[in-house]
Design a protein around this nucleic acid. Structure first.
Length: 570
RNA sequence: CGGAGCGUAGCUCAGCCUGGCUAGAGCACUUGCUUUGGGAGCAAGACGUCGCAGGUUCGAAUCCUGUCGCUCCGACCA
């Protein structure tokens, strides 16, 4: 490609609505343009990089026995009602109506469609296992799109769905995808690592996310450098000890705490109740019903764990107006010892198991209770791990200190089980003629997000530093004179022809611009190798080969093409 | 949805508080000349419903009301 024949609208300054470096570079390098919030056009160079990421994914999916299909973006609500997700995923579903008033959903993912296909087309164990995948536009009504392609209303996702006859088979399919993902991200030049993950609205019981470490990531990951344990903070556990049991305390005693409404205030003079001897009482509305959650005063509730453990779909903190009629006191004086309606469930964090000599609210404004023994004095409905781990806690596997860092989620693999196959009738007949639901898995990669994650991870002060495998062009030839009869241009065209014939993606910067402009643009876009052809080196019979991420080397003209090919192979 | 901020040329921004000549600068764009190894110089030129609607006023980019859009924090997030 000749530079003047394509369109590479580079910007000297980043538009003011871009916040993070990868978003700024996507815009400055002319890779994307915004049409509206969370909605982008891929410009010629951005699309080339995107296609390369897609192709890597396609090759690895095919290698792992994936079979490519293409499912509709426009989906009838009926199948979403059958799976139950018309309601549970309602907040992210784009809903549109056709001219006759019929409603459609724009696909945010495709479990319902592929399971319907399986229900209709797969009847026998002889047809299994199968793993279908597609790379297509997805739509999510994100409350708050942000950071360019990172969280968009419309984006490209690779989604795959496996169908197996047995749980063991499903595990094998899962493992194949897990391995394929590891290869995909490595080939994209990304340092991505798998972590244990919550399954969210998708459902299922086993899941990993692939994370790219980045300060701008929207996720937090707890990990152990000693043994390799890693989990999303929403899922992570630690080996932190339970609350110490003390001598059996005296009977419960109510004491006045006027104006004290925080854990911290109660831990100070004159009360001096350490946070780790307090029970924090939180009231949540889980699927429209109030529930009480107890965690230790020095711990933080993990809402995702809470929803996952109790099976609740919609979870939110109760408002003061909901709490007062329920327990008779305002937040700050709440407890689960007295005055708790019998039908309100009480969930407690496991770290409180066996705890005694605790202090908690009296459900009476301005009063607390001490000498509370949780198992003696509170009717706990169920014990769960509900707390959020923090850095420095002992690893649940090896006991070494956990660390926490931020990361971008680029892929997610789920073992689904039979949730969708049962609801949508994806059954098969086994060897004995018994009718069984297929055991499913589903596997997603945010393709456009992956592209941005590559830039977020690989850039410097001058611009993008593309990994060779996904660069829009691998080589940029930069003649410093572009008139047709100049030696630089003749040689540039010769190199262009030779490298193109060898299958190299080459762009020739034939713009009549000053050298500085061309070098700055080439660095900004981030081509892995630049060949500069200028009078100074040509006079010595040489050209300059400049890898984007290392120093230039002068090479004899005759040896230039071979030298570039050698760099591309390295 | 709660909080905060911003909408003026393709991009970055000034002007607004304290209303008043024909609405500005830099970059980008067009033409010419010079220049040519890291975002050139000079000259000429083109580019604006000052987000939109309404109001106040002799007069509104500027003040008021509404509305739409964008960004950030939170909530949310497959």
């Amino acid at each position: 490609m000749y530079w003047t024949k394509t369109l590479i609208p580079t910007l000297r300054e980043a538009p003011s609505d871009a916040e993070i470096v990868s978003h700024k570079l996507l815009l400055r390098a002319g890779l994307i343009r915004k049409l509206a919030g969370g909605v982008y056009t891929f410009m010629p160079l951005g699309l080339r990089a995107l296609r390369k990421v897609e192709q890597i994914i396609r090759e690895e999916m095919n290698r792992a026995d994936g079979i490519e299909v293409l499912m509709p973006a426009l989906q009838p609500p009926e199948i979403w009602e059958a799976s139950g997700r018309a309601e549970t995923a309602s907040n992210v579903l784009f809903k549109v109506k056709d001219s006759s008033g019929r409603q459609w959903f724009l696909s945010p993912t495709a479990e319902e469609v592929i399971t319907t296909i399986a229900a209709n087309e797969i009847n026998s164990y002889r047809q299994l296992p199968k793993n279908f995948y597609q790379i297509s536009l997805k739509f999510r009504d994100e409350i708050r799109p942000r950071f360019g392609l990172m969280r968009a209303k419309e984006f490209i996702m690779k989604d795959a769905y496996s169908f197996d006859t047995t749980d063991d088979g499903a595990m094998a399919s899962y493992k194949k995808m897990y391995d394929a993902y590891t290869r995909i991200f490595a080939r994209c030049g990304l340092k991505a690592f798998p972590v244990e993950a919550d399954t969210g609205v998708i459902g299922g019981n086993y899941s990993h996310e692939f994370m790219v470490p980045a300060e701008t990531g929207e996720n937090e990951v707890a990990f152990c450098e000693a043994c390799g344990y890693a989990a999303n903070i929403e899922k992570a556990t630690s080996g932190i000890p339970k609350t110490a049991v003390r001598e059996i305390g005296a009977a419960i005693e109510k004491f006045a705490t006027p104006g004290v409404v925080t854990i911290e205030a109660l831990s100070k003079e004159p009360y001096k109740v350490a946070a780790n001897r307090q029970i924090k009482t939180l009231i949540y509305i889980a699927d429209s019903k109030p529930v009480i959650i107890l965690i230790r005063g020095d711990d933080q509730l993990n809402e995702t764990k809470f929803a996952a453990k109790t099976g609740a779909v919609a979870v939110r903190p109760a408002t003061v107006d909901e709490i007062v009629p329920l327990l008779g006191a305002k937040p700050g004086s709440l407890g689960a010892v007295v005055n708790v309606p019998a039908d309100v469930k009480i969930y407690a964090d496991e770290r409180l198991q066996g705890a005694n000599d605790m202090t908690t609210g009296a459900n009476e404004d301005g009063f607390h209770l001490k000498n509370v023994s949780i198992e003696r004095d509170i009717k706990v409905t169920a014990w769960f791990d509900l707390r959020t781990v923090s850095a420095g806690e002992p690893c649940v596997k090896c006991g070494k200190a956990l660390k926490i860092r931020r990361a971008i989620e680029v892929g997610h693999v789920f073992k689904l089980g039979t949730k969708y196959s049962e609801k949508l009738g994806a059954n098969f007949l086994d060897e004995a003629g018994a009718r069984k639901p297929a055991v499913m898995g589903c596997y997603g990669i945010g393709v456009t997000r992956t592209l941005q994650a590559i830039i977020e991870q690989s850039n410097d002060k001058d611009g993008v530093v593309w990994p060779l495998s996904v660069a829009p062009y691998q080589v940029c030839i930069t003649p410093l004179a572009v008139t047709a009869d100049s030696e630089a241009m003749k040689l540039a065209e010769q190199f262009y022809t030779e490298l193109t014939a060898k299958g190299v993606d080459v762009i020739l910067d034939d713009r009549d611009e000053r050298p500085g402009v061309k070098f700055k643009d080439a660095d900004l876009v981030g081509f892995p190798i630049r060949i500069a052809l200028g009078e100074k080196s040509l006079a010595k019979g040489e050209v300059e080969i400049k890898p984007r991420s290392s120093a230039f080397q002068s090479v004899k003209i005759e040896a230039a093409v071979e030298a570039v090919l050698a760099l591309l192979k390295a």
